[in-house]
Simulated scan of single mutants.
Amino acid sequence: MGAAAFLMVEYVGISYVEVIKAALLPALISYIALIYIVHLEACKAGMQGLERHYKPTLAQSLLSFASTIVGLLVLSAVIYYGVGWTKDVFGAAATPMIAAVIFIAYVILVKISANYQDHTLEDPNADITSVPDPGPTIKSGLYFLLPIVVLVWCLTVERFSPGLSAFWATVFMIFILLTQRPLMAFFNQEMSLGQATKVGVIDLLESLVSGARNMIGIGVATAAAGIVVGVVTLTGIGLVMTEFVEFISGGNILLMLLFTALISLILGMGLPTTANYIVVSTLMAPVIVTLGANMALSFL
């Protein structure tokens, strides 16, 4: 969904803030439905959750879920409204000032995280028998929220392109991977800085390999979507689809939207979100625009 939002910005040519406003309610409905579907499948399969050190009530679980959603919204609002004014006041100097603040916050959060690290050597192949306590787990990785802060800042305040915003967020994430272990080693005094730096470099290389492997499927699907787009562009099948939808809808706007949604659903089967958006936006969006323009002209 996040990658599709970036594509919307590129294809439609509107700001990321407008995409967020338009996609907020559908995204909430989608994720609530996803959680409910997972719950139903787990109940159908008779799956039981891991043992908890504490058992929250239903009200506490709902409050925790709502707090997470509200926290993300508040974080975005604070970045946009609470820090965005610095751009108007300090101009070009606001960016290095915010960068310095983020760096200081990063060091402080790593210091907090170092106090919650589990120093016992665990077997990675051992079975997980209980759910870790959420409090220490969250506090041990709070600094991983900072790349999101950088991303939101670049998108909403600096108004960078999605690609450039993701680039700077990725650069900061690489910086975190390289420096988190040396900083923790400095605060905990458990290993030398050289050894910690070596481990950080290994973590970075492993993450690059893992990221490349995960992108293979998306890359292939996006390439296939590009082939579909090229075929549509060269053969003129888009005009045929426009005439087809107009014929079966009989000029009725509601039927036109329903048939377009059905065709989009069929075209998107088996495709990830990114490739799905490319195909549907290329094939079906011009259909709606063309038919809508024709109907507007007919009324004139």
Rank of each mutant, 00 (worst) to 15 (best):
C154A: 15
A225Y: 10
L283Y: 11
S130A: 02
N276C: 15
M173R: 15
V228C: 03
V83N: 02
P134L: 07
A45V: 07
L7N: 10
S67F: 11
G230W: 05
V101T: 03
M47Q: 14
A23Y: 00
I288P: 07
S264C: 14
S210E: 14
V228Y: 00
G219H: 10
T197D: 03
V78E: 00
N214D: 15
P96S: 04
T179C: 13
L204W: 14
V89F: 03
A94P: 03
N252R: 07
V171E: 13
L25C: 13
A105S: 08
M184H: 11
Y143D: 06
I174S: 05
A221I: 13
K111Y: 13
I176V: 14
G230D: 03
L267P: 01
I288R: 05
M295Q: 11
I237C: 04
H53L: 06
R181A: 10
I98S: 01
G250H: 11
G2A: 09
I69H: 01
M284T: 14
I263R: 13
K198L: 11
N276K: 13
L239H: 14
L265Q: 08
V38T: 09
V201N: 02
S140C: 08
I248Q: 06
A45I: 04
S76F: 04
R213L: 07
I248L: 04
K44G: 11
L28A: 03
V19R: 07
V171M: 15
A296Q: 06
T156H: 15
H119T: 15
V171S: 12
A261E: 07
S61E: 15
P26L: 01
F172L: 10
H119V: 14
V12E: 10
Y36V: 04
I35C: 14
M1H: 04
G292N: 00
N115Y: 12
M269A: 14
F175R: 00
T274M: 12
V201A: 13
P162R: 00
G230C: 10
S64F: 13
T137D: 05
M47R: 14
L265F: 12
V17E: 13
E206Q: 14
G49E: 00
L177K: 13
S249D: 06
